Amino acid sequence: MRKSDYRKLGGIVILLVLWWLLAYALNRHFLFPSPFAVGKVMLCQLQNTAFYQAIIMTLSRCVIGFVISYGTALVLALVTGHMKWLRDYLAPLITLLKSVPNISFILLILIWFNREISVMIIVFFVLFPSFYSSFTNGFDAIDQSLREVMILYPQSLWRQIVKVELPLLKPYLAASYESGIGLAFKVGVMAEILGQVPDGIGKKLQWSYLNIEMAEVFAWTIWLIILLVLLEHGLRLLWKKRKE
């Protein structure tokens, strides 16, 4: 392990100790459970099939919404990069999507669409404007001298996109993934809670809240954090392998 990994591990240990001290000082375990109580709940959840079903349902909804939003934004950014006039037409729409509060998206879409589909649609609309803006900024950042070289040595549009533009957009693609995947799950779980969507982490959190089972609320929150860390770490490894 590297020194930075040891420091991160030390930071986690410090947080756990502070958590335990705060729980001990408050002495209200039904409102603020200790790490030991939450760990016991997490171990019990691992033995329950409903736990895995909730993880899979939430994961599938959020990932589908994320992938559709990410792919649509990338394709549209590449198209508008070559058709500047289209970007001007889309600018008011992108500004509007950025300005609408996330909670408004959630409430409106929950009213208009089926509860199951609504989570994916909400994730799409919340993430799309930020993805699109990031990708267009990356496209505009391509060195002008490189553009002049492409004009001198013309290639097919497909080859230009695959061999030149997409590799130059990699930093923006990676940054958008890392910032977007966490937001996708936060918004997705919130949508599950407000829409009372069955079979998901949001439903489990809502049930725990209604029954004042704070240890379960903490446990599901930690599982969600672990899931996000694994997804982010997995993509970082994928980027590194592709670079090698």
Rank of each mutant, 00 (worst) to 15 (best):
L205T: 05
I56Q: 14
D143P: 10
V17Q: 09
L107S: 08
Y89N: 09
K240D: 06
K3P: 00
G195V: 01
L43M: 12
Q45A: 09
L127V: 12
L230Y: 03
S208I: 11
Y89P: 01
W20Q: 08
G39I: 04
L231K: 02
K84F: 11
G11Q: 05
S179D: 09
L168K: 13
L18W: 10
S134G: 11
T80Y: 03
L231H: 10
D199Y: 05
E148V: 09
Y209Q: 11
P198M: 03
L18S: 09
K170C: 08
R28C: 06
G188D: 00
Y132V: 09
Q45G: 06
A50Q: 15
G195K: 01
M57Q: 07
D88N: 12
G81Q: 07
I181H: 05
T58E: 08
R115S: 14
N48P: 02
L168Q: 14
F128I: 12
L108P: 02
W19R: 06
L97V: 01
L78D: 02
E192C: 08
V75M: 10
W20V: 01
G188I: 02
V41I: 10
L146Q: 13
I226D: 00
D143F: 05
M120V: 07
A174S: 02
L127F: 06
I142W: 06
T136R: 12
T136C: 11
L110W: 01
S99Q: 05
Y177R: 03
Y52D: 01
N48L: 09
V63D: 04
G81K: 05
P198A: 07
H82I: 09
Y177K: 12
I142G: 08
Y52L: 04
L16Y: 03
A191Q: 02
I122K: 10
G39E: 05
I181M: 06
R115K: 15
A37I: 10
N27V: 07
H233S: 14
G180P: 00
I56C: 08
V217P: 07
F131S: 08
V119H: 05
A219H: 00
T58Q: 03
L157V: 13
P167Y: 11
W207D: 12
V13R: 04
I68F: 15
I181P: 01
Q53Y: 03
A175M: 06
L157G: 12
A25G: 07
W85S: 15
Y172M: 04
Q45T: 10
L78N: 03
L235I: 11
R147W: 14
K240P: 00
I201E: 11
K170D: 05
Q144S: 11
W20A: 14
L96R: 06
L31T: 10
L46S: 02
L74H: 05
L238W: 10
G200E: 09
G71W: 01
K163Q: 08
G81I: 00
A54I: 02
G138C: 02
M190D: 04
G10M: 11
K204P: 00
S176E: 13
R2K: 12
Q53W: 02
W207G: 04
M150L: 14
R87L: 08
I121F: 12
A141N: 07
D143W: 02
H82W: 13
I106L: 15
I161F: 07
R2L: 09
Q196I: 03
K240R: 15
S208E: 01
T72W: 06
R242M: 12
